[in-house]
């Protein structure tokens, strides 16, 4: 008879090192964020004031919901370009209905349905339609933005008459921290736990890691993917509602480019475009880093026109580092 399993110990050290490399992502991001903060606070002491920090956090919180969704989409092996437009559509539809009926619940309900329909459309196009997520969500992105312009006729609408409780969500504080920031971080923590420990989210990892193998394990990949895009629709609705609560207006240009910010944040945080990898913790850190970078430009008196260029450089450096680390790992294996 064969003897009981012998665990090889000689390789443990090398393996531990590899494991550290995969964990290093979050630690490295925290390190970079701290480093940035120190440098910036030396350059401008205003940076480390709680007011500035909360401003940065507030600025990323609405995008944060889209980043949560994007992280799950990337893990499933896809992505969703329509998140920015759908968020704008939620605001415009809710705003429009509220102005004409003054019934906020109707406005919220209809906008929720529209967001879920948009998410389902993405899901159906990708699963039953067999379209590439890029093409499918690009089309929905255009359709949603198109609807925004048709409904709003291109003009932003003021929503000063929103009920007080909704305005409170938009401007209220708890111990000095804006509600919106608190809501986002609670959502992020819940998502982090679900992604790591829930059965449904585990299936998302399986599908993104190897769709065929998931099928051969009794998982229906199409069902999982549909669920992912539907969920993103729901997150867009939350983002859209929080946006009108915060700005007390709905703008047809709102959310332009947010899909790219969300993808950048998730990728900086360790999500892989080839699926199966990513954490909410990492994505959130990525988003914070991007938030600090754009906040810093304002503080340092650099023109906002630089923002896009510098954010893109941050993304580029992050993925280049990744690629280099991956390649050294691969070389070691051979």
């Amino acid at each position: 008879m064969e003897t009981v399993n012998e665990i090889r110990t000689e390789k443990t050290e090398a393996k531990n090192f590899l494991k550290k490399l995969t964990k290093i992502r979050e630690i490295a991001l925290i390190f970079i964020i701290v480093l940035f903060s120190i440098v910036l606070s030396i350059a401008n002491p205003v940076f480390l004031t709680s007011e500035n920090i909360l401003n940065i956090l507030l600025s990323i919180s609405i995008t944060g919901f889209l980043t949560l969704g994007m992280t799950v989409a990337l893990i499933a092996g896809g992505f969703d370009l329509s998140v920015g437009s759908v968020t704008a559509l939620v605001g415009i539809i809710a705003g429009n209905i509220f102005i004409s009926t003054e019934n906020i619940f109707l406005a919220l309900l209809v906008s929720l349905l529209v967001a879920l329909v948009m998410g389902s459309l993405n899901g159906l196009l990708i699963t039953i339609g067999g379209l590439n997520p890029f093409i499918a969500t690009l089309s929905i992105m255009g359709i949603a933005r198109g609807l925004v312009y048709i409904i709003s006729k291109g003009a932003p609408m003021s929503l000063m008459k929103l009920p007080e409780w909704l305005k409170d969500i938009g401007r209220g504080h708890l111990f000095g921290i804006p509600y919106i920031v608190i809501i986002f971080f609670i959502a992020a923590i819940i998502f982090h736990i679900l992604l790591k420990y829930s059965r449904q989210m585990r299936k998302v990892f399986y599908v993104g890691s190897n769709e065929d193998a998931a099928y051969f394990s009794g998982i229906n990949p199409n069902k999982i993917k549909f669920f992912v895009y539907l969920m993103i629709g729901f997150l867009c609705w939350i983002a859209g509602v929080l946006a009108i609560a915060r700005f007390k207006s709905a703008s047809p240009t709102f959310g332009t480019g947010l899909e790219m910010t969300a993808i950048s944040a998730a990728v900086i945080g360790g999500a892989s475009l080839s699926g199966g990898e990513g954490t909410v913790f990492g994505s959130t850190l990525g988003l914070i880093l991007l938030g600090i970078v754009s906040g810093a430009l304002v503080l340092l008196g650099i023109s906002v026109y630089w923002q896009q260029l510098i954010s893109s450089l941050v993304l580029l450096i992050a993925v280049l580092m990744d690629s280099i680390i991956e390649r050294t790992k691969a070389n070691k294996r051979i």
């Binding site: 990892f205 890691s209 190897n210 193998a213 998931a214 099928y215 051969f216 199966g276």
Partner: peptide, 17 residues
């Protein structure tokens, strides 16, 4: 191609079904 989740852990692979 159809069996393994190569980038996932041993435990994750064993539990998939």
């Amino acid at each position: 191609k159809e069996g393994l989740f190569l980038e996932m852990s041993i435990t994750d692979n064993v539990s998939a079904m």
